[in-house]
Amino acid sequence: MCKGLFSLLILFLFYTNVQAQSEYNFSEEENINAKIADVQLNTSDGGMMLSNLYNTSPILVALVFSRCTGICSPFLLQLSDNIRTLNSKEKFKVLVVSFDPIDSLSDLEDMDNRLGLNKKGQWTFATTKQIDALNSSVGFRPIWDSLRKQFDHDALLVGINENGYIAKKLTGLRGISDLKMMIQSIHNEFIPSYPLPRKNNLLSCFTYDPATGKRKPSIGLLILVLPVVLTFGLILWLAIRSKKWRRATNNHLAD
């Protein structure tokens, strides 16, 4: 039976963990603490410098393009969902910049209307003529695929603090806990350590709890507590069983 259970465990673990530890996506670490390029933005309020935005409050910068048939729409939708669910009291703005030179402001506004993002006025949509400078300052490298008439790119969210420095980056579609860490980071809250993005988080001890901003226990911690539970279970079982043994010993002595 033990062998069967063991192979089951292996099988279970096999399907949940399939990545070696060193293969993390390091692009999230790129350009950390570098200054974002202070480019001229074209928004519905007219022109402004990017620094005008971050000087008033920290910002999250999302890079998208309106013709995208891939990740851009789900990325923005998920971001707005997560922001709504998180309902953070911290002040910050979201800046969506198109990295496609042929996008116009109205293309972006259409996108906003379609997705229903900017209901509270927290979001700003912008195009810029200096997109290359912006891209390279945050380490974003979209590649034009002429066959599909699409950019080949990753979803990227960049957190900028009030001084214009990149505090944190998130690539791909990410959960609410990462967003919480991002918002703490752009408000210069120090987090002494963090796990690197990798698929293998099954047995980690803690995951970040967005509700409290603290790390909450996950399966790994259960494994850590398991020996205590098992030992106390064993002791209790022995204690109950031992009543019988003591009775037997006493009877034996009485005989």
Binding site: I10, V18, Q21, L203, G220
Partner: peptide, 15 residues
């Protein structure tokens, strides 16, 4: 589990 999974299963270092 990690040793006999041939690299398919990886543990968490902190745990």
């Amino acid at each position: 589990a990690e040793y006999y999974s041939g690299g398919a299963f990886v543990n968490d270092s902190l745990l």
